[in-house]
Amino acid sequence: MEIGISRVHYPVTTLGPGNRIGIWLQGCSIHCEGCISMDTWQFNVNKVSLDELKKVLNLWLPQCDGITISGGEPFDQEAQLIEVLNFLKPYSKSILLYSGYSFSHIENKQPIQNRLIDVLISEPYDHTKSQTKRLLGSDNQKIHFLTTLGERDFRAYLEQPSTKKLDVQIVGDTVWMAGIPLNGMKEIAEASKRDKVTISHSQATIKNN
């Protein structure tokens, strides 16, 4: 079985407590306006075998503190997602998953009903809402503690003030960032112009009303 993967990275320190494995799935049908990861929307690209993904994860799982899964939209590849979650669960590392679907749309899905996810962040990103809560792109999004492991790892972490920091990796002319930047990539790109640096990015266009 193949799975669409945008990228996999370790360590990620901005999307949950500790040093986490970050898995970004490729493909999203929701297309939230203002999304900072529009490059992850396209389906049928960046496909790898699940066996290859598992080999990479096995390198990091012994030392990681947890796993954060985002996208793209993980539930748009539900069968592959279940396979990955079943592989990860025996390691007893907390699994945080972001979904742009409303909780009512996915609450009966197998990963949630079988508690394969420890913490779920649901609801579509809304660029018109405020952004004050830790780990949330917009304050309308909801955090669900699905297991005692998730509650143990995340409850105190989420009560701390948001630091708004980013993990940054530079490969050639590409700068890759993990985290939730305040106000998104457009402001970062505009600010860089003061230093005569031009940044192109994949944040979705926000329509002018």
Rank of each mutant, 00 (worst) to 15 (best):
S192T: 04
L116C: 11
W24I: 00
T40Y: 01
H201Q: 01
S162Q: 03
V48L: 09
E107T: 10
L136T: 00
Q42Y: 03
I121R: 03
Y91M: 07
I21Y: 03
G27Y: 05
L135S: 11
I36A: 02
P90I: 13
N46I: 06
L96P: 01
K89A: 14
T14H: 08
Q160C: 07
E151C: 05
K133V: 02
E107S: 15
G27L: 10
R115T: 15
N140C: 06
G184W: 06
T14M: 01
L182H: 04
S49A: 10
K207Q: 15
I30P: 02
P62C: 08
E190T: 05
P90F: 14
N44K: 10
V56G: 00
C35E: 02
E187Y: 03
I112K: 07
Q131F: 03
D76N: 15
I21R: 00
N19P: 05
N58D: 10
N108P: 07
A79C: 06
I117G: 05
I21C: 02
S49W: 01
G18P: 08
S104N: 15
S130F: 00
A178I: 02
L59C: 02
L182Y: 05
T147G: 12
I117Q: 09
G27M: 04
T205Q: 13
T128N: 14
L146V: 09
M38N: 10
I206C: 13
G72E: 10
R20K: 03
T147K: 11
K47R: 03
I199P: 00
K196C: 00
Q77T: 07
S122K: 09
L149E: 14
Q63W: 06
V171Y: 11
D173N: 14
S49D: 12
I5G: 11
K133H: 05
G34R: 01
L81V: 10
V12W: 03
S94A: 15
N86Q: 11
V8H: 05
I170G: 01
H144C: 03
S104T: 12
D173H: 05
S29I: 09
Y125H: 15
K54P: 03
R20T: 03
G4H: 06
L146C: 02
G27D: 06
Y91V: 04
D139R: 08
G172T: 10
T163P: 01
I121P: 10
S102A: 15
L61G: 00
I5K: 03
G66D: 05
K196S: 04
V175I: 08
L158W: 05
L136C: 07
K186T: 02
Y157W: 09
D39M: 14
G172E: 12
V168A: 08
G27E: 01
K196N: 13
R155E: 15
K54I: 02
L88D: 10
